[in-house]
Design a protein around this nucleic acid. Structure first.
Lengths: 238, 238
DNA sequence: GAGGGTTTCTATACGCGTATAAAAACTTAG
DNA sequence: CTAAGTTTTTATACGCGTATAGAAACCCTC
């Protein structure tokens, strides 16, 4: 009925924490032909070779040599699969040298987070659902909360600060990747161009003056700059 | 072949701006049975009565008394439909009294924006694609850019400041609405609970200490507080 | 052996967004 | 009246995520 053990670490431990005598005991039931790890590995192969758009449950089933619905006994849904993929990516992040200074620590940690996601923007939807990254990447959150407290924030406010940074990061990835997707399919002239072309300078003088530069201005990568501003505002006075 | 006139404002105007002699001229071709306005109105009805989940192209076609594919001659895709819906919502926003002080103007404008979206989080995906709201809500952007410049920022930096706020807002809505959706389907115990339950206090002391308060801490609405911090960081020093 | 219990896997089906191709309904030219 | 051209509408189809129901494959106890 239920999906088998989430974290692969704990297995066959009763509620009281006692491990049953035969540690290498096979549970009853039909033996599985595929495993969660198989699925994740196959998913990795597909994403690397054909892109995430091709990562469908049917394609994945074919890759592991099974049927689509069989996957659902090992993975709750497609979103969970994406989170598992991220888990793998996160494991590979080299834990970088972090600055000592709290403010710079936070910025550095957020940049690591951002870089991982920016390369795989399709993860963000799945992540937002889980609101937090997989367990493997939690050290980034720890760093940020810890540094925020070192900078003088209470535990509560440190968490809120982390969250603000998380929001900002999710938003940046979402918007920028959506914009990129749109630029990719560039036969149509885009709603925005049309709107900007017909701006009324009397009503919206600033935007009208910026209209022709708008696309250029909003294509620049300003994540780091905005992040620094946010952190500056979040931490107690300069 | 192409989808007829975007903004309903300009019609039958040649490239040189001269209106052809017969202003009430019907173009050739099969006369339309439905219009863009019909579609948007029907969409509104469905969303209000049955929720956005029911707003499918098939259901919408039934509502306007047509077939699904007929809609696609008046609307590019479902996302564009959502943007048109937002357009309508935006038109209804009463333009509030805005504070004179630039910093507070920005905050107030962002809060208006946030409130509109927070009530209709499903709009955000469509919006992110278009990266900007429909024309009707552009005054919010104008206010923010203008106030940022009044506070001493260059035009470029003012746009970047607006963008940072936009990112933060999109992220907040995305994450919070995803979390809400998840809390709605609460039979399963959620991946996050599992992760937090098995935190290693030696590795992640801050998070372990906060584990039991985490959900409470991350459920609080901190949009306004984070926004103020962001604006403080973006505008030149106090 | 035979029958339950349990787990995994397969078959089938639904509704979704939308691509594609063709039919229908009109205007205009001959 | 007919033929061509244009626009809108329809029919059909594809692949998607996944719900549901039942078959298959194993372990036990008799």
């Amino acid at each position: 009925m239920s999906i088998p053990g989430g974290r692969s670490g704990r297995r066959r431990v009763a509620d009281d924490g006692v491990v049953p005598p035969p540690p290498q005991r096979r549970a009853t039931g039909r033996p599985p032909r595929i495993s969660r790890a198989d699925i994740v590995a196959a998913a990795h192969r597909i994403v690397d070779a054909e892109g995430v758009a091709r990562l469908t449950m049917r394609r994945l089933a074919a890759e592991v040599g099974s049927t689509p619905m069989a996957l659902y006994h090992h993975v709750r849904d497609r979103d969970e699969l994406l989170v598992l993929l991220l888990e793998d990516y996160a494991r590979r992040i080299p834990r970088p040298e972090l600055p000592e200074q709290p403010r710079e620590r936070i910025v550095a940690a957020a940049l690591v987070l951002h870089d991982v996601l920016a390369e795989r923007p399709w993860l963000v939807t799945a992540l937002a659902t889980d609101d937090l990254m997989g367990a493997t990447a939690l050290w980034i959150v720890e760093v940020m909360v810890d540094a925020a407290m070192a900078a003088g924030l209470s535990a509560e406010r440190a968490v809120h600060a982390y969250r603000a940074i998380w929001y900002y990061t999710v938003g940046e990835i979402t918007v920028r990747s959506a914009a990129g997707r749109q630029r990719a399919s560039r036969d149509r002239p885009s709603y925005r161009d049309e709107v900007f072309a017909s701006l009324d300078p009397a009503e919206l003088p600033r935007l009208a003056a910026l209209a022709d530069r708008w696309t250029a201005l909003t294509t620049v990568d300003t994540y780091a700059a905005g992040l620094r501003a946010l952190v500056d505002g979040l931490l107690p006075g300069s």
